[in-house]
Design a protein around this nucleic acid. Sequence first.
RNA 1: GGCGGCGUAGCUCAGCUGGUCAGAGCAGUGGAAUCAUAAUCCACGUGUCCGGGGUUCGAAUCCCUGCGCCGCUACCA
Length: 693
Amino acid sequence: MKSADQKSYQRLLVTSALPYANGPIHLGHLAGAYLPADVYVRYQRARKRDVIFICGTDEHGVPISIIAEKAGITPQQLVDRFWADHFDTFSRFGISFDNFSRTSAAIHHQTAKEFFKVIYDKNYLVERTIQQFYCTSCNRFLADRFVEGTCPHCKQAGARGDQCETCGSSLEQTELIDPYCKVCGRTPVLRETRHLFIKLNEFQQKLETWLKGKKHWKKNVLKYCRGWFKKGLGERAVTRDLSWGIPVPVEGYEDKVIYVWFEAPIGYISATKEWADKIGQPDRWQDYWCRDDTQLVHFIGKDNIVFHAVIWPAMLMGHGQFVLPAEIPANEFLNIHGEKLSTSRNYAVWLGEYLEQFPPDPLRYYLSVNAPETKDADFTWEEFQQRNNSELADILGNFVNRTLTFARKQYAGRVPPCHDLDALDESMLADLKQAPEKIGQLFEQFELRKAAYALIDVARTANKYFNDQEPWRSVRENPQKGQTTIHICIQVVKTLTVLMAPILPFSAEKVWKMLGLADDVHEQPWDGCGERPLSAGHELGLEEILFKKIEDKQVQPEIDRLRSILAEDKGQTMSSGENQKRKQAPGIVYDDFARVELRVARVVSAARVEKTDKLMQLKIDLGGEERQIVAGIAQHYQPDELIGRQIVVVANLQPAIVRGIESKGMLLAAEDADGKLALLTLDRPAADGAKIK
RNA sequence: GGCGGCGUAGCUCAGCUGGUCAGAGCAGUGGAAUCAUAAUCCACGUGUCCGGGGUUCGAAUCCCUGCGCCGCUACCA
């Protein structure tokens, strides 16, 4: 980050990940993508840089249509509700977007279609036919989440087509046992459908080269990308059979929509266009998107890394006319009391609920000083309370308070004059002078934790200065010294106010008023803010308590609520402890073995699966029944040496799709320590399909 | 199964490319002070830096290995 060429760019375009409009905003969202971005933007504004902050809701896609359907409203009604909810929550937390748009906006539909068309016209898309479940009664293809069934792994009913909530394994919709349509409950049929895929592989080289130039990026970002490159980028569907979304602007695809993952990030561009329209300079958006000297900064959570650092840049490269991300400060996750957030279990802290009890700044501070920068962080109400009380209230707030109270009582609420400086005064002023530079550096490098800490540290130093100078004593024994001390303390308060504004915007406004200043604290220049004292005689405003202490009884109900959710879950895993018992048992019972249907099969044909190292596609004869299986033995056997042989297969294994090929069964082989495979065969011939016991 | 991360004082964590790196905050103990939100300031930490090997003049920091958590992802033994 140190190398971030701060001089070479002229303007900053900062974005936060587009929140999905299917539920309210919780702590994790705020800590990962919104608060760090807002603090950064506020800081940059104070540096008087040309910066805009863009965001908006992501409103298309399957989950939204499902939720809307269940609630008996239209998707549009649903996203209208959540757009308003998000907008309101962010405003109340002081997240200072220049524009908070939405992907259902007309300008986005238009922008996304144009973008799509460019990619299409440049031949980066290719048509593929795939198999997908189709519900004949609803008359539509079922997206992964629209199909439910029994999980092939844990056998729990109610698993979704993309993932089983119970055991957490990710699924292909075709793996589900007894699949049914989530909407009407009927059994769907497999049907072919055409889709357009983007050939991401064509961008891999360019992307790798580009990313090599990003040495200062966070390690976690680079590592995730490296992993993807190692595997190699493949093709990715960019269209879907769905009605809620942006129609594909290509002939023959009118009844399909652009896949949300493709269309949503284009929202960054549309939202910038909308911003330009709103300020009455419709072409301004191009300054930010089409000029090389723009620094594009995407704040995201780690779940979005590969997307923003690989796929989205590939799209931008494909399009060709827009800037690429310059910085991707990705944050890790925030746990709550040691456990992962879970919206479905309501194990979360919702921001709306937080605001019913507490002001925004204490949370902004706590999430800054405890930001999930390099690893997952943990939120606890106890620590939140403790940090509010001891750092914001006792150290920062109390310093402001003792200074202003002192000035009001001793100097009639006016700034006393400054006289000769002693060593302590000099030292305090020196610290003040370098504070903006020091904290600014940290903001610049996305080191929010350290910046928040450094801010409180200024107040710590100031408290020590106050103590050491003992103005309550010098006011009697050496009036000039007392005046000088308080004069400087007021200068500290003023500086602190500017320095705290990015993290604690609401509190900064309060202090600014207490100082008797009428202009806007957020307009104050950061540079040199440690060296601009209030002049002697300036009349101060009325001080008030900046940060209230948070009492145990205020956080206790929240703690209890979270605990009870955890306790409930534990109870459930206990009661479904059948699995655990089985795990503890030293062996399996006969019935367990009997469930595995092993049979003799004759290999009818064999062929390597293209573009794979290990896979071979086999047709086998199970005594009248012919099947296709996929086996990972290509590195050990040639197709020719398998044809005609009798092998052993698990006949009742759940079918699976491996690299797009259905596999109905699994052959058996022995693996030695080197990883060499030896196929199981028969000692003497038996009938094809014979059972093995 | 593969890839990646993490494991440092009672708690939460800093410690980048190896040599004042054994640290900070909180909690705890003692003291100073009393302007202030019963706030502030000062002093005090003998921790097997997860275990075991190795490289090195020297490792919490690099390599190997074991254990324990966690994340991502699978090409069906």
